[in-house]
Amino acid sequence: MDGHPATIDDMWEVAGRRFRSRLIVGTGRYKSLEETAAAIEASGAEIVTVAVRRVNLSDPNAPMLQDFVPPSRYTYLPNTAGCHTASDAVRTLRLAREAGGWNLVKLEVLGPPPFLYPDMRATFEAAEALIKDGFQVMVYCADDPLAAKRLEEMGCVAVMPLGAPIGSGMGVVNPYMIGAIKREAKVPVLVDAGIGTASDAALAMELGCDAVLLNSAIAHARDPVRMARAMKAAVEAGRDAFLAGRMPRNYSADPSSPMAGLIR
């Protein structure tokens, strides 16, 4: 027995693929592609989310994300960021599949500002169309246990309730419901959006979540590479703490040092 099976063999699986890192990072909002690459490297992430956008016709030779974050090394998880209707989301992911050949995708259909809250009716509609079209859908959703269960029953391969609105940095504002969604789910549950700092990521993992997805918390830190490192450690610490099983909460004191043998 090595005594630490949790940190050595504790892999997680989504859509039949196994991953060691439980941190998925976005590739947006960095100052440069160089900084993107350095932060992702420091995060230890194996999966990165990417967006699908029009190429710049006037500058076809501009450096591309793939040159800095190679898809041969990282699993690309194309997203539907910016899509506010089911049909836009489906169109976007069909293009992503053609561009990279990936069936594993992140579906998000968003409502209007200021919260960009998941539009669940449109999300269901898009999820149904994508699953029918052969996609493996990881789905961004409200922290609603019924919605999460229905998405799972439809065939989504992971449910990803928000910790708080996208880019808000507010952390996991409804930990009880995130924990409830995880306890009921048979597919991986990831906290997606809202993470602001390392302790937020650790909390998500302590709640039993399979992984955490974040972007702005690293990209908008003063030192993104250092924050990426902090997130890597936080996710590992939170996972270990969850597996270790926390002690019970009790408001009254319980001394740690033995009372026997005190000098008189």
Partner: peptide, 10 residues
């Protein structure tokens, strides 16, 4: 026609 590629995103 729409011609797209991958860019950074969250």
């Amino acid at each position: 026609l729409e011609i797209v590629h991958f860019i950074g995103g969250g």
